[in-house]
Amino acid sequence: MKSEESGSPQDDVSVATMKDRRQQMELTFPSDFKYLGAVDAAIQDLAREFAFSQSSINDLSAALIEACSNAIEHGNKFSKRKRVRVVLGFNGGSLSACVYDQGAGFDYDKILGRSLPPEPISERGRGLMIMQAFTDELNFKYVAKKGLCVELVKVDKDSATKAEGGEAG
């Protein structure tokens, strides 16, 4: 891995893979929007590998980009010293993404309690709408020793069928 000041965005993204019953891949990158393209590329590639439909891939990517954007902006507040960590997991037809930041945490009950959509010309407040609309599950949870995680889960029926038949995974 190179320093944050040099190299292409991809050079600053570390990828670790772990193969077991539930396959996982981890991405860690600095708090800068320029790395979102690498996140998109990773999820597109991984979901395709597990035979997800392009529609499901695009949905999950839109939600993940949003969660990472929030982690960069609201969690790490664009601090170059802080990183965003994404743990991607595949489990029999569903892909999950846990997004961790190094911020002070947030009151997710308050965020989930927002019942009204933003005003049409409001420039903010659509991140949660995007994450909810494009995933089958959206969870905010505390993971011991790891911190607060925004977990996104997307189920792809075609991929699940293939996984059961031993074609993927």
Binding site: L36, D40, E123, R126, I130
Partner: peptide
């Protein structure tokens, strides 16, 4: 433009207004 996030939407809305 390959994709957009909510902050990018905010930019478009700002231009619109």
């Amino acid at each position: 433009v390959s994709w957009i996030n909510s902050t990018g939407l905010g930019i478009l809305i700002s231009g619109y207004t």
